[in-house]
């Protein structure tokens, strides 16, 4: 019984980090209506950025957020502005331009392979950071400290983004664009600028997620792929475009992955995840928290 509680807690903690990795994906989809296949690669770029920041300066891994989040914001902002925007303009009259998805796939391959070229295929990790291997002992239960920090960061990030979308002029403009691009233009909102900002925010949350992962996760050029597939499942489970949904979707996956092995072979948990994914698609295609709203 105790094991199950312990695993549940660790599953929730890890799951909220999964949710954080998927949050940017859901924001970008919500506004641009485009599935960003390069999201895992942006996470990977963030992880390398965090890794080198911490390794070279020796600061506490979480302090890297101060550098990584803004750097990733600008990375995302200009990636959309320079690479993706021209395609949006060329496909102006298409509601959900497929070519943009293909371009994000291209960005994924380019980022992964450039990283491979520059840093090589080896696994890196921040082995002697103040959080590594730390455990919080509650009675006979052990809770992973870096994951606890990650969970808290995920909650703060989700609340911060929620506040930004609800209470600021830019946030309202982003929501307006996500609901009706044309009506938003008629209100004087430049949709391409909004896309830049939304992509920037998506990349920045990937950067924050990267910082939370770096203290306990290996860093290698294709690390993003693992989170990409999980991210898609999480986002569809929680409802495309819903920030809270991403968090809940992540926690569900985290719970299945950590509690599942108590009852079955660990590899079977994957099957449960995908089975649940299919059931949600059949029963509630808009996801658990998705709005039944025509994008």
């Amino acid at each position: 019984m105790l094991y199950i509680i312990e695993d549940s807690i660790n599953g929730i903690l890890m799951g909220s980090i999964y949710g954080l990795t998927a949050m940017g994906l859901t924001i970008i989809f919500g506004v641009l209506k485009v599935v960003n296949f390069a999201h895992g690669s942006m996470l990977m770029v963030g992880m390398y950025l965090a890794y080198w920041t911490v390794t070279l300066s020796g600061i506490h891994p979480y302090l890297a957020i101060v550098l990584v989040a803004p750097a990733m914001f600008f990375f995302g902002y200009y990636l959309q502005n320079i690479v993706i925007k021209p395609i949006f303009i060329a496909e102006k009259n298409v509601r959900e331009p497929l070519t943009v998805i293909i371009v994000t796939t291209g960005i994924w391959y380019i980022l992964d392979n450039m990283t491979l070229l520059i840093f090589g295929p080896q696994y890196r990790s921040l082995s002697d950071n103040p959080l590594s291997g730390q455990m919080l002992e509650i009675g006979q239960m052990f809770i992973s400290v870096p994951k606890l920090y990650g969970c808290i960061t995920a909650l703060i990030t989700a609340l911060g983004i929620y506040w930004f979308f609800q209470k600021t002029d830019m946030g309202r403009a982003i929501r307006a664009t996500s609901m009706d691009r044309e009506a938003a233009s008629l209100m004087g909102i430049n949709q391409y600028k909004i896309y830049n900002v939304a992509f920037g925010i998506g990349a920045a949350t990937a950067g924050i997620a990267a910082v939370t992962l770096v203290p306990f996760y290996n860093i290698f050029p294709t690390v993003g792929v693992l989170f990409d597939i999980k991210g898609f499942i999480i986002v569809v489970l929680g409802g495309l475009g819903s920030i809270g949904g991403a968090l809940v979707g992540g926690i569900i996956i985290g719970l299945i992955e950590s509690v599942g092995p108590q009852f079955m072979t660990a590899t079977w948990t994957e099957a449960i995840v995908y089975g649940l994914f299919l059931v949600v698609l059949f029963v509630k295609p808009s996801g658990l928290f998705g709005q039944k709203h025509d994008w």
Binding site: D169, R175, A176, M179, A183, L186, Q291
Partner: peptide, 29 residues
Amino acid sequence: VTCGIIHVPEGRRLFPLMSVKDNLIVGAY
């Protein structure tokens, strides 16, 4: 819009999931 021509489109085209007040505030963007 910045020049001062505002078009209230056919079929209203409100931002459906936003509150009335937020819809209005977006108008002043």
